[in-house]
Deep mutational scan, measured.
Amino acid sequence: MSIQHFRVALIPFFAAFCLPVFAHPETLVKVKDAEDQLGARVGYIELDLNSGKILESFRPEERFPMMSTFKVLLCGAVLSRVDAGQEQLGRRIHYSQNDLVEYSPVTEKHLTDGMTVRELCSAAITMSDNTAANLLLTTIGGPKELTAFLHNMGDHVTRLDRWEPELNEAIPNDERDTTMPAAMATTLRKLLTGELLTLASRQQLIDWMEADKVAGPLLRSALPAGWFIADKSGAGERGSRGIIAALGPDGKPSRIVVIYTTGSQATMDERNRQIAEIGASLIKHW
């Protein structure tokens, strides 16, 4: 067993022997301040990774656009098919120029040779490549099948209805392509620590998230040296922004954090800054 596999296998073990965790309302004060600064709703939840206990939450059962955070769930569904012998990570998928959609920095470079399922998941999570996500959605049967996968996990809230990039439209009061912070946090925890996926697939999923290259201005910008984070960000229309993450000190994750916002007129930089400040408060009061 590799060191990384050992780390993920012992996530519940280490967490069980940690000192009790206590909620700190100071972080919620910052979440509410972010709402004021952005002029928009902000949803927040913080779960203990081992027990699933909610440590703090704000608007945990209000719907927010998922945006690209759905790509972690998508690759979880792909990995479940791999575990069941219905898919192979090494299978190569070929596609054409007509398949390319807006923001496809990886797939646009491989029109000639195609990409493997493993490479597509890596591109979808680490670079948020939209064509990679659409190609992977095709392998599982489309958005409705991802929703069905989530329902089978016990998540009857999260739903995907459309493809990239239309799913980022974020129309107010439109339930399409949305989740709730509580539902997303619980589902992410199941994917990373539950028995739904094999140990190898859980490790692969967290490795992809740990290698995320496009979430630097968010929670990662607030992390002290030595902290662990595996995350996936999302951005959408109407001032929408979000991030889902597993993080913790001492090089291992111990909490799940989900943050979503929508309806702001603020710039992307300002949305990023507010999420980073929430992260800084979380870490300060850990």
Rank of each mutant, 00 (worst) to 15 (best):
K252E: 12
E175I: 14
V117H: 03
N168Q: 05
V106F: 08
G142Y: 02
T158L: 02
L73Y: 06
L89C: 05
V214H: 05
T116H: 03
S221P: 08
G251S: 13
V214E: 04
Q274N: 10
G236W: 00
N152T: 13
T186D: 15
M209N: 01
N152R: 14
V157L: 10
P224V: 04
L167F: 04
K30C: 07
V258P: 00
G236K: 03
R162N: 09
E237A: 14
N134S: 03
E108V: 14
K284E: 13
L196E: 13
K109E: 12
C75D: 04
F64S: 00
L223M: 14
T267C: 11
R159K: 09
I93N: 04
A230R: 01
F64C: 00
R238C: 12
I206A: 10
L199Y: 11
D99W: 06
S51H: 09
A170H: 10
M209E: 02
T27D: 05
V257L: 09
P60T: 12
A222R: 12
V29T: 15
A34S: 09
G216F: 07
S254A: 13
T138M: 15
M153D: 01
T69N: 00
V82A: 11
Q88W: 15
K213R: 12
S240P: 02
V257N: 04
G114N: 05
R162W: 01
Q86E: 14
H156Y: 15
S80L: 14
K109S: 13
S221N: 11
N50S: 14
P181I: 05
M66H: 05
H24P: 08
S104F: 04
I244F: 04
E108F: 10
S240H: 06
L196W: 14
A235F: 02
S96H: 14
R118A: 14
I206D: 03
V157N: 10
K30V: 13
M184E: 00
D174T: 05
E35R: 00
V42D: 00
I275P: 01
E166L: 12
T69D: 00
E61H: 15
R41C: 06
G236R: 02
E87D: 13
E210T: 09
A215L: 00
R202A: 11
D83V: 05
M115K: 05
T112W: 15
W286H: 05
L192G: 00
D129K: 01
I229H: 00
E119C: 04
K71G: 00
R255H: 06
G194H: 11
K252M: 13
L55A: 07
G239H: 03
K71P: 00
D155M: 01
L150T: 09
N168I: 00
S281G: 08
I283Y: 12
L74M: 09
K232E: 03
L191F: 11
M184L: 07
A34L: 08
E210C: 11
Q204D: 09
R273C: 10
M66T: 07
N272P: 02
L192R: 01
H151T: 13
H94Q: 11
L218I: 05
F58S: 11
K213H: 10
H24K: 15
F58R: 09
S254Q: 14
R202I: 08
L146Y: 06
F228N: 05
S221E: 10
H94T: 12
A200C: 15
R189L: 14
S104C: 05
I283K: 05
D83M: 04
R176D: 04
R41T: 09
L160W: 01
A225E: 12
S96N: 13
R273A: 12
A132K: 01
G90E: 15
M180F: 10
R189F: 15
G52F: 06
G52W: 05
G52T: 06
S57Q: 12
T198Q: 11
N173I: 09
R255I: 04
I259T: 05
G279L: 06
G234P: 00
I259N: 03
L100H: 05
Y103E: 04
D212Q: 08
S201M: 11
P224S: 07
E87W: 06
E108C: 07
K53R: 15
D129H: 00
I244Q: 01
P25D: 14
Q203L: 10
L160Q: 05
E164I: 02
M115H: 03
P165Q: 07
I229D: 00
E87R: 04
G142Q: 04
E175F: 10
G251V: 08
P65H: 04
